[in-house]
Simulated assay, not measured.
Amino acid sequence: MSDRTLRAGVIGGGTMGFGIAYVLASSGHATTVVETDAERRAGLLARLESRAQAGVDRGRLDPDAADALSGLVSIVGTVEELRSGLDVVIETVPERMDLKRPVLAAAAERKPALLASNTSSVSIDDLAAELPDPERFCGMHFFNPVWSIALVEIVRGKATGDDTIAAARAVATAIDKESIVVANVPGFATSRLDCISAFESMRMLEEGVADAEDIDRAAVLAYGHPIGPLRLSDVVGLDVRLDIARHLQSVYGERYAPPAILEQKVAAGELGRKSGQGFFEWKD
């Protein structure tokens, strides 16, 4: 797949679906986005074009690729409107089994060569349990913002075939991403690493080691992180962080116990960027 134009589907036009659709289309691949919300669907192409122009302005996207983007993207309202036999379909709906399972079942009926779920926490084996071809299914965990983070974490379920892993790695290469392959364990690899960093940063803030700005600045300047762990937590959503913490704690024990400050902020409705206040104030 990596040496030819892909025919791709992305299910969900939220933050992650938008980013995945953008990197596919800006890399020259024909991309259909499924978005059930009419208002979000109406503005999606304009947002993609705006993102492309921002890429051009920053010297990160060729102007010809930006000009071609709108002709490569189509937007539909249901999974049933996806073309049959696409090279890859990536599901990006919220991290809930009851939402993901029926969407994946509908996507499987479109017979894509590769079906993947963008998930950071949901079991690939549980998602695959009711699929007709589980050997053609895997996890493809992208990172926000998708256009900036070079990694895709590919998650191999018990039924995932070697050809599926190869196809997923080829898709990553086709959008200029590096990939790693991990086992289907709670938190995979990257979420476990990310949460340890985030939770320790929160505990440092609780203890008065430094303020939030300086803790994040240390991670960025000393270790080359593109964004500090506290600001990233705000972007992810502190309620999401708390849910993940509780899940990982139930599996791995107290090393993943949620910090008190995280529980307090969620209880107060300070959820990060989406609420306007988290560890930082957000005005956008």
Rank of each mutant, 00 (worst) to 15 (best):
S2E: 05
D3L: 03
L6Q: 01
R7A: 06
A8Y: 01
M16C: 05
G17F: 10
I20K: 05
I20D: 00
A25V: 03
T31W: 00
V33Y: 03
V34Y: 01
T36C: 07
A38V: 06
E39H: 05
L48H: 01
E49W: 03
R51W: 10
A52L: 05
G55R: 15
V56I: 10
D57Y: 15
D64E: 15
S70Q: 03
G71A: 12
G71I: 03
S74T: 11
V76Y: 02
E80I: 08
E80A: 05
S84Q: 07
D87G: 00
E95Y: 05
R96D: 10
A105K: 08
R110Q: 07
A113F: 00
L115D: 00
S120Y: 04
V122H: 02
V122G: 09
S123H: 14
S123E: 11
L127A: 06
A129Q: 12
D133S: 02
D133N: 04
P134S: 04
E135W: 04
R136Q: 05
R136D: 01
C138H: 03
F142T: 01
N144T: 04
V146L: 07
S148T: 15
S148V: 13
V152K: 02
G161L: 00
I165Q: 00
A166Q: 04
A168Q: 00
A174C: 10
D176W: 11
K177H: 14
S179R: 04
V181R: 02
V185I: 13
P186N: 09
P186F: 10
F188Y: 12
F188D: 01
C195E: 14
I196N: 08
I196T: 12
I196M: 07
R203Y: 09
L205T: 11
A210G: 14
D211E: 13
E213S: 12
D214W: 13
I215Q: 11
I215C: 08
L221M: 04
Y223A: 09
Y223N: 12
V236E: 09
L238P: 06
D239M: 05
A245E: 08
H247Y: 13
H247I: 14
L248R: 02
E254K: 09
E254N: 14
I261C: 15
I261Q: 15
L262P: 12
L262R: 11
A267H: 15
A268M: 01
E281Y: 07
